[in-house]
């Protein structure tokens, strides 16, 4: 039986804010990261835990103006089943389906994935590629942080000690295309070796791409954007020479590491090859 830190289960958001304002707490949502950490004695357990599972303010999937908004407590199962996600951001549903299996998908949340700040967090590249905004709240009020700025360093987020992640806004852009690909270790219950999200705007498959976003996980200390590769892709048509240039640029700009799951060489090579394939599929050649 593992360590059992003190936990408080507020029933309202303002109650939660008040607790956070008094003392630092480690929030727990679906528990799929925190309980692994405590049981596995991976680092020191938190002194105080804030159980946010009952905060209904953090639930729900809705379209709000020009954005698809997911409450931080939206589970992967809810993402997979949501007609709104299927309509406006099917890549997110696809990503959710690659995480764990039924047990994890029923408990793991998009907010937990973001706040846990693992460089291998499967949805995080998608948040970056879609220019998602993370809405944070505290007694001091609410503020938004873009996904590109939310993970400043290894296992860190932009959250202040008294803040909670409330919801995630995905701007809906009419002509945007989004692709997701995870290279994992097996077909379920797998942590990624490389995870990639690619977004662009364009009229159809062959027209030049605009506003290209290429984000990757498991290849650096944080989820990252591949800026040099984006520059190659921006304004280019998805043809073979673009794909070749983008793939080699990506291989050059990534600096992954060897670890228990894979090797630096493989990650670099496979990221480039997966990107090449995504461009090729988009171009239809």
């Amino acid at each position: 039986m593992p360590v059992e830190p003190h936990v408080t289960s507020p029933r309202t958001l303002s109650e939660a804010y008040a607790l956070l304002a008094q003392q630092p707490h480690r929030p727990v949502a679906g528990g799929t990261d925190l309980l692994v950490q405590i049981t596995g004695e991976l680092g020191d357990p938190p002194d105080r835990v804030l159980d946010i599972w009952h905060l209904d303010e953090l639930r729900g999937i809705a379209v709000d103006g020009d954005a698809l908004v997911l409450g931080a407590l939206t589970t992967y199962t809810e993402m997979r089943r949501s007609p709104l996600v299927a309509e406006f951001l099917p890549a997110l549903s696809e990503a959710a389906a690659t995480i764990g299996a039924a047990q994890i998908q029923n408990r793991g949340t998009i907010g937990g994935n973001a706040a846990n700040a693992s460089p291998a967090g499967d949805t995080l590249p998608l948040l970056i590629a879609c220019d998602a905004e993370l809405v944070l709240g505290s007694e001091r009020g609410e503020r938004s942080v873009t996904a590109g700025e939310f993970w400043p360093e290894y296992r860190r987020t932009a959250l202040a000690a008294d803040e909670l992640l409330l919801r995630i806004r995905f701007p809906m852009v009419g002509d945007r295309q989004v692709r997701f690909r995870k290279v994992g270790t097996r077909r379920a219950q797998a942590i990624s070796k490389v995870v990639m999200a690619l977004a662009w705007r364009g009229d159809d498959g062959t027209a030049p791409w605009r506003d290209v976003r290429l984000a990757l996980g498991s290849v650096a200390a944080t989820p990252i954007r591949a800026g040099a590769t984006e520059a190659v892709l921006d304004g280019a048509s998805p043809d073979q020479s673009t794909a070749d240039r983008a793939a080699s640029t990506l291989a050059g700009e990534l600096n992954p590491i060897d670890d228990v799951r894979s090797s630096a060489d493989y990650r670099r090579a496979v990221a480039a090859r997966v990107l090449h394939r995504l461009i090729r599929e988009a171009g239809g050649w």
Partner: peptide, 24 residues
């Protein structure tokens, strides 16, 4: 949460009982 040997149903949904704190 890797092996599923502790799977139970929580309000009908299958979960790993090793990852659910009793407060929830």
């Amino acid at each position: 949460g890797e092996c599923g040997a502790c799977s139970v149903l929580l309000d009908g949904a299958v979960v790993d009982a090793c990852l659910v704190p009793i407060c929830q």
